[in-house]
Simulated scan of single mutants.
Amino acid sequence: MLNTLLFNSKVRSLALLTCALVLASLLWRSDQPPEPLQAEGLRGPSEPDGFVINGDYRSFDSQGDLAIRLSSPRIEQFEASERATLVEPEAILQDQPSDSPWQLTARRGDFHQATGQLSLNGNVVVTRPLPEGQAATLSTEHLTLDNRSRTVHTNAPVTLTDAFGTTRATGMTAWIDDRVLELTSKVEGHYEPAPNPTP
């Protein structure tokens, strides 16, 4: 009987000691911050960190005037690569000297935060109103807008159309505020002469 009581006493002490150690371990671990969740591991590398529906962003120059307005029905953000993808982006770029905006549309866009560049792909069309009430258009499959240098450029074939005709080339750089356009290579044009006024 004495052995049973002694045995039970030892078992109780061992059980109490085990409980105390487990409790101490739990209290010690509760002071440590939890392991951070690896979001990319949970969602997969091709899924965005966040998204915006019907996004409308505006960028202003140092004088507080609107420089760029960018909108898209869906924008997906990827934090690790500091990149955002845009579905059917539309952009309006203010030409400060003439206050005549450039309008850009495309099927897809990729904005790279580190460089401030917007790469447009698929049926890229740039439209600019002309003083006579007509419009000039530039179309290409790829175009990069550099917000820092206020330029647009491409190495792809481009087609320019205005009231006087059509020009085709491979590669182009345009300086937005200076209203200067430089065609790189393989430039060919077709122009219609202005009609002679009747006497």
Rank of each mutant, 00 (worst) to 15 (best):
L6Y: 10
S9G: 10
K10D: 02
R12K: 07
R12L: 14
A15V: 14
A15E: 04
L16I: 14
L17D: 01
T18V: 13
T18G: 09
T18Q: 07
T18K: 05
C19F: 15
C19I: 14
L21S: 11
A24I: 12
S25D: 10
S25K: 10
L27R: 08
W28Q: 07
W28T: 11
P33Y: 00
P36E: 06
P36N: 05
P36A: 07
L37H: 07
G41L: 11
L42W: 05
R43P: 02
G44C: 04
P45Y: 01
S46E: 13
S46Y: 06
S46R: 08
E47I: 09
P48M: 02
D49R: 04
G50K: 07
G50A: 15
F51W: 10
V52L: 14
N54P: 02
G55M: 03
D56G: 03
R58Q: 14
F60N: 08
Q63H: 13
Q63L: 14
G64H: 05
I68R: 03
I68H: 06
S72L: 01
P73M: 03
R74D: 01
R74V: 07
E76Q: 15
E79W: 06
T85R: 13
V87W: 10
V87G: 06
E90M: 10
E90S: 12
L93E: 00
D95G: 06
D95W: 04
D95H: 15
D99E: 13
S100Q: 14
P101R: 05
W102L: 09
L104K: 01
A106E: 00
R107W: 06
R107F: 05
R108T: 10
G109D: 00
G109V: 03
F111I: 02
F111H: 02
H112A: 12
H112K: 09
T115S: 14
N123D: 15
T127N: 13
T127C: 04
P131I: 08
P131C: 07
E132N: 15
E132S: 15
T137G: 03
T137C: 08
L138K: 02
S139G: 11
S139P: 03
T140S: 12
E141K: 08
E141H: 06
H142I: 10
H142T: 15
T144R: 07
N147S: 13
R148I: 12
R150D: 06
T151L: 03
T154L: 04
A156V: 04
V158Y: 00
V158E: 00
T159Y: 05
L160A: 00
G165C: 06
T166P: 03
R168I: 10
A169V: 01
A174N: 04
W175D: 12
W175F: 13
I176Y: 01
D178Q: 15
R179K: 10
V180L: 13
V180H: 10
T184A: 12
T184K: 12
S185D: 13
V187W: 00
Y191E: 04
E192T: 15
P193S: 11
P193I: 06
P193C: 04
N196S: 14
P197N: 11
T198W: 09
P199N: 11
